[in-house]
Write a protein that binds this DNA or RNA. Sequence first.
DNA 1: ATGTATGCAAAACATTTGCACCTGG
DNA 2: CCAGGTGCAAATGTTTTGCATACAT
Lengths: 142, 142
Amino acid sequence: MENQEIRNAGLKVTGPRVKILEILESAGEKHLSAEDVYRLLLDNGAEIGLATVYRVLTQFEAAGLVERHHFEGGSSVYELNKGEHHDHIVCVICGKVVEFVDQTIEKRQRQIATQKGFELADHSLTLYGRCTDPDCSLGKKD
Amino acid sequence: MENQEIRNAGLKVTGPRVKILEILESAGEKHLSAEDVYRLLLDNGAEIGLATVYRVLTQFEAAGLVERHHFEGGSSVYELNKGEHHDHIVCVICGKVVEFVDQTIEKRQRQIATQKGFELADHSLTLYGRCTDPDCSLGKKD
DNA sequence: ATGTATGCAAAACATTTGCACCTGG
DNA sequence: CCAGGTGCAAATGTTTTGCATACAT
């Protein structure tokens, strides 16, 4: 039961938190902004304030339940942390996001960090390109 | 003469633009936020509005004269585009930034994009870690 | 002269916070 | 019951814009 995940994070299992987690789960590989989550909550009939969405997402991030990404364009987006690290390719036309992992790159990153005198803690790699989706350029968002 | 670069960008050679370019040149490998540039201009006795700094930086970016990066933490930072592409390692403690290029990673990125059905246009790679600088943790900013 | 640029103040956003009121355990 | 959670509105910080004035060519 996912409520346990919330409890494990040291947080009370409240309505807003459960619903936000559900929204994120149902989003699958999509990446939602705080505003997106808020809209979806309202669409589902939940009466949750935007401030709470921000607070909960921040807490979930601190607890390692979700990851926050910055991509191009004003706002941050969130996705459920499914355990396996991955990077992203974002289509600059339609916004589609595809995830990937590449051990060659991961390994080189560690080598570079060490070589430059850093103890690697984290990294952010995002590729930007034009995808070949038929729907692309119709303005469809991931 | 650098004024030519401004002219080549299709922009008039005005006082503010020349001074902002000078600030960026003297910053070397440092990464400045719009606010940083604004402060430095005032320190140098220039009377330039913050709005102009934002407008000019945006125009310079569109012209390929500067690059904008998003790193962690609210604001964007800018650096002069010296022609050679590079990525960054940022110290999460003191904020120091080191640039690097790695052909192995560059090459893998192209392969991954192709394989995922994207035409690679750009990418953003930032490593985060703790540096071994003696000054680190004194809060020195790059 | 004349189309651009600039400065200033106001607007627009994304995100955070203060505070009185609720609620889960 | 009571610490912690929530909603709302107001505050923040960053970046953008409207508009009247000033400037480069």
